[in-house]
Lab assay of single mutants.
Amino acid sequence: MISLIAALAVDRVIGMENAMPWNLPADLAWFKRNTLNKPVIMGRHTWESIGRPLPGRKNIILSSQPGTDDRVTWVKSVDEAIAACGDVPEIMVIGGGRVYEQFLPKAQKLYLTHIDAEVEGDTHFPDYEPDDWESVFSEFHDADAQNSHSYCFEILERR
């Protein structure tokens, strides 16, 4: 099963200049909980913004210009990325925008964090048809001392 995991502000903004323009430790914990011990696929820009392999996960970098870091697996196509994951129950696609666009048609599940923030962004989550998805989990949280904005975790499964 292919799943996408993303944090989205208003207007589906997911990033600005290779960074997330908010401070939500709870979302980072949600991300870790849902990706640990699963292969993660990301684009080169996302890889560069993280700066290191995510521990406890097979890191697969999709790029037309593969790098030389041998701590991760470099691939040039969506099919190659899927094959590099091996026989696993769930593959997690973690961004960025172009990689989400490439995998959305193949995805069966979306793990979304909806952030109540209007922020400037240069990267967006692809538009998706809500009628194609069923919400199977939703959990709202107010902003607090650690988390700069209110947010809602949601899991959607393709109908």
Score class of each variant (00 low, 15 high):
Ile14Gly: 00
Asp70Asn: 12
Ala84Ser: 09
Phe153His: 06
Leu28Tyr: 14
His114Ile: 13
Pro126Leu: 04
Val136Pro: 04
Asp79Cys: 09
Glu129Pro: 09
Ala6Leu: 04
Ser63Glu: 01
Leu36Gly: 10
Ile60Asn: 01
Val75Ile: 15
Glu118Val: 09
Cys85Lys: 01
Gln65Cys: 15
Val93Ser: 01
Met92Pro: 00
Glu139Met: 06
Leu8Ala: 04
Arg158Ser: 05
Ser63Gly: 13
Val78Thr: 13
Arg12Ile: 02
Pro53Gly: 13
Leu104Cys: 03
Ser150Tyr: 06
Ile115Gly: 01
Arg71Ile: 12
Pro39Asp: 02
Val72Gly: 13
Trp22Val: 00
Pro105Trp: 08
Thr123His: 03
Gly86Arg: 12
Leu24Ile: 15
Ala83Val: 14
Gly51Leu: 08
Ser49Gln: 02
Gln108Lys: 09
Asp69Thr: 08
Phe31Tyr: 06
Ser63Tyr: 03
Asn59Phe: 06
Arg98Asn: 08
Glu157Leu: 06
Trp74His: 09
Leu156Asp: 00
Arg159Leu: 09
Leu110Cys: 06
Ala26Arg: 02
Lys109Phe: 12
Asp127His: 15
Glu134His: 10
Glu90Lys: 00
Pro25Gly: 05
Asp69Arg: 07
Phe103Ser: 03
Gly121Tyr: 01
Val136Ala: 10
His114Asn: 14
Asn34Met: 06
Val10Ile: 04
Thr123Met: 02
Ala83Asn: 10
Val88Leu: 12
Val10Arg: 01
Ala26Phe: 08
Ser3His: 02
Pro21Arg: 03
Pro130His: 13
Tyr151Lys: 03
Gln65Ile: 14
Ile61Ala: 02
Pro89Lys: 06
Thr123Arg: 11
Ala81Val: 05
His124Asp: 09
Met20Ser: 00
Arg159Phe: 11
Leu112Tyr: 02
Ala143Glu: 08
Phe137Arg: 10
Phe103Trp: 06
Ala9Ser: 13
Ser148Asn: 01
Glu134Cys: 11
Pro55Cys: 13
Leu8Met: 09
Gly67Ala: 14
Ala19His: 15
Pro25Arg: 05
Asp87Thr: 08
Asp142Trp: 10
Ala19Tyr: 15
Asn147Ala: 11
Ile50Ser: 01
Arg44Leu: 04
Asp79Gln: 09
Glu134Ala: 09
Arg33Ser: 14
Val88Asp: 11
Val40Lys: 00
Gly86Val: 08
Pro126Met: 08
Pro126Thr: 07
Asp69Asn: 07
Leu36Asp: 05
Asp144Trp: 03
Phe31Val: 02
